[in-house]
Nucleic acid binder design. Structure first.
Lengths: 341, 341
DNA sequence: TAAAGCTTCGCAAACGTTTTCGTGTTTATA
DNA sequence: TATAAACACGAAAACGTTTGCGAAGCTTTA
C-alpha cells in the first residue's frame, strides 16, 4: 500500500509548520487567504483525508460500536445487526461485528480486544456457553469501569446494565392462547434446554396461558431439544407417539418447520389434526406448506433500541440508572393454525 | 467511562520513566528483576492492557478488515461474513461490517471512512446502484494507491483487483441440464434486471445448456424481475398464462419459493406439471413443500477465500498479479425436480 | 513616534505506545 | 588502579492529528 499523504508531508512541501497546514485545511482565520488557498489546493489534489486512528487517539473517541453475537448466519441476529447498523450510521457511528460462536472463551477474548480502545461501547448477546456456566465476570469488569454496555435478547438479570429484550413470556402466552381459542387441548411445547433464557421464559408464558385457561399442565408434552444433537430425530419423538398432541408451540422457526414436516410425513392434517406455531425470525415460516403461524420478534427494532441505548450512554445522554426496554412480539396468524373453512 | 490505566500513570506511580514500564511489562532484561516485579504486579492489579489505537497508530497496522455488503438480512451475505470472520479471527484480524443498502452513495462514503486508517484492507460486494451506474472511480482510486481490496460475488471485470466469484454460468448450466434430463422442454428463467452481474451470468448458463441440448431458446420464457416492485405479482405472470412452462429456473431462493407457492395455488403438481429449481442461499428451499432442488452457493467458503486473498495481499504474501477465485456451485436435488416414482 | 492592535504563523503539548540510543553507576578484568 | 564490561534506566523520536499560546512583523491610532 502506498503511504498516505499527511499533514507533515504537506507542511514540508510548502516549508510551513504542521499546525499551519492543519489550520489552513480547517479554514482558520489565523492563516492568510493566500497560504490557505495553495495548501487546500494541494491537499485536494492529493486527496488528503485525516487519519482516523490519529483522530481517535487524540479525541479519545472512536465512533465505533462493537457488537458481539453468538452467530450471524441466523435471521434473527442479522436483523438485529441491521437495526443497529442503521441507527448507528444515522448517528455517525460505525459497527464492528464479532462472533462468539456460542463459546464463552471467544466471547471473553472478543470483548477484551474490542474494549482496549477500539470501540466506544459494546452491544452483546451472550453465548450459549456463557448462559450455561453463568460466569459474568467479564461483563462485571466492564460495568465497574463504567464502560458503555448493552445486552440484548440473551441477557441475565444479575448483570447491571442497559438491556433490550423481547417479552418472551407475553409472546408465548399469546401464542398458547391462540391455540386454545381454536379449540386445541393437548398443546405440546418444543423448547430448548433450560439454561437458555429465552427458552425458559417462553415456557413460562406457555404455562401461564394453560393455567389461566384452566388446562392442566402435562409435563410429558414438554420437550427439551438439545441443539447439538440431531434435531429431526428429537422432534420426531414429539409426534411419533401413541397419543400425539393436537397442537405444538415451538420456541423457534426451525423446530416448528421440522415439526410441520414430520407431521405431514405422518399423514396428519395441519391444522386440523395438529396446529403449529413457531417463534420466528426468518422467512421459512412464510414458505412452508401450510405457512406457519408465528410469533414475530422484530429483530431490527431490537437492534435499533439497543443502539439507541448504547449511544445515549456513550454520549452521556442516558439517565444514571440502567434502562430495560421490552419489545412486544406480535402474532402473525397463517394457515398452520387457521383451518380453511 | 472511567479513564483506563496507562503506562504513564504506572510510571508516575513508581517514579520511573514510561519506557521503563513498557520494557518491564515486556519482560525486558534491561530492567531489574525487582523493578519488573513490582511494575508487573501493579499493572496486573489494575488490569492494564495496552491501548489498541496507540498500537495501531504506531505500527501503522490495525489488524482489522472492512467488509461492505449491500445488505445483511440475507442468508447468502451472512454466510459470507461468517466465512470471513472465521478465517480473519484465525489470522488475528477483526472484522468491521458496513452496509451499503444497495446505495452507491453509501458504498462510497463507507469506503471513504474505512480506508482512512481504520482498516488494513477491504472486502466488498457492490451495491445494485453501483452495478447500475457503472461508476467505479472509488474502487480505482483505492487500487491506484495499492490499497488491499477484494471484490466478491457482485464484481466487474473492468476493476483490476483480487476477486472471488461463483461460477454462475456453470451453476445455471448444471441446473438447466438437470431439468432437461428429467424431460422438461419449456424451461422458464426467472432472473433479475440485466445490470445485476450474477443475473446475466446465470442467464448465460441457462442459454448455453439449452443450445447445447438443441433446444430452441424462447425469449418469452425469460422473465426479468424488478426487486423494487411487487414480487408475487411479477412472478404470477410466469405461471398464470395460457401455456405455462413445464419447468422454472429461478436465480434466487425467494423467486423460486414464490413460484412454487403460486404454482401450487393454481393446482399444478410439482414436479410433474412444473419442476422448479432455485439458486439458493438460505434455509427456505429445505422447508418448502415439496422441498426445492437448488444450486448451492457456498457463501461461507466464498467468505473464507475472500479473506484469505485479502490477508495475503495485506501481508505481502500474494503474487503481484491479481487472483480470481472461482467457486463451483453444486446442485442439491430435492423433491421439486424429483418425481416420487 | 511610541503604544496598541492585528495578521500570520510556529512551538509544544497531548493522546499511548514502542524502540533505539545514550548515560551513569556498579562490577569485573588486566 | 585504570579500564572494560555489565547493568539499570531515561530521553527522545515516531505514528498523525488538534489547539492554546506566544511571537514576530505590520498597521493603525493617539
Amino acid at each position: 500500500m502506498k503511504p498516505r499523504i499527511t499533514l507533515k508531508k504537506i507542511a514540508r512541501e510548502f516549508g510551513v509548520s504542521i499546525s499551519t497546514v492543519s489550520k489552513a485545511l480547517k479554514d482558520s482565520h489565523e492563516i492568510s487567504e493566500e497560504t490557505r488557498g495553495k495548501i487546500k489546493a494541494f491537499a485536494d489534489f492529493y486527496n488528503y483525508k485525516p487519519n482516523n486512528l490519529a483522530l481517535q487517539l487524540r479525541n479519545q473517541k472512536t465512533s465505533v460500536i462493537g457488537v458481539i453475537i453468538p452467530e450471524i448466519v441466523h435471521h434473527f441476529f442479522s436483523t438485529v445487526i441491521n437495526g443497529i447498523e442503521k441507527y448507528a450510521t444515522e448517528k455517525g457511528y460505525n459497527v464492528m461485528v464479532c462472533l462468539s460462536n456460542e463459546s464463552y472463551e471467544k466471547e471473553v477474548s472478543n470483548m477484551s480486544v474490542l474494549t482496549n480502545g477500539s470501540v466506544d461501547g459494546l452491544i452483546v448477546s451472550m453465548a450459549r456457553e456463557t448462559q450455561q456456566n453463568q460466569n459474568f465476570k467479564h461483563f462485571e469488569a466492564l460495568i465497574s469501569d463504567d464502560f458503555p454496555l448493552v445486552l440484548f435478547d440473551r441477557i441475565n438479570d444479575d448483570i447491571q446494565c442497559d438491556k433490550v429484550i423481547i417479552d418472551d413470556i407475553g409472546g408465548a402466552f399469546k401464542a398458547t392462547n391462540h391455540l386454545i381459542e381454536i379449540g386445541k387441548k393437548r398443546i405440546a411445547l418444543i423448547t430448548t434446554l433450560d439454561f437458555i433464557s429465552v427458552g425458559s421464559l417462553r415456557r413460562e408464558g406457555y404455562l401461564k396461558a394453560l393455567t389461566n385457561q384452566g388446562i392442566k399442565v402435562d409435563e410429558s408434552l414438554i420437550y427439551k431439544i438439545d441443539d447439538e444433537k440431531d434435531l429431526y430425530e428429537q422432534i420426531e419423538r414429539v409426534i411419533n407417539v401413541a397419543n400425539p398432541p393436537d397442537a405444538i408451540l415451538a420456541v423457534n422457526e426451525i423446530y416448528a418447520a421440522i415439526a410441520l414436516k414430520t407431521a405431514k410425513g405422518k399423514g396428519l392434517n395441519i391444522p386440523k389434526d395438529i396446529a403449529i406455531i413457531g417463534f420466528t425470525s426468518g422467512l421459512i415460516s412464510e414458505f412452508t406448506y401450510p405457512p406457519l403461524t408465528s410469533v414475530e420478534q422484530h429483530g431490527s427494532l431490537m437492534g435499533k433500541q439497543a443502539a439507541e441505548l448504547l449511544i445515549n450512554r456513550i454520549e452521556n445522554l442516558a439517565p444514571a440508572d440502567y434502562q430495560k426496554v421490552v419489545i412486544s412480539p406480535t402474532l402473525k396468524i397463517r394457515k398452520s393454525t387457521l383451518s380453511a373453512n
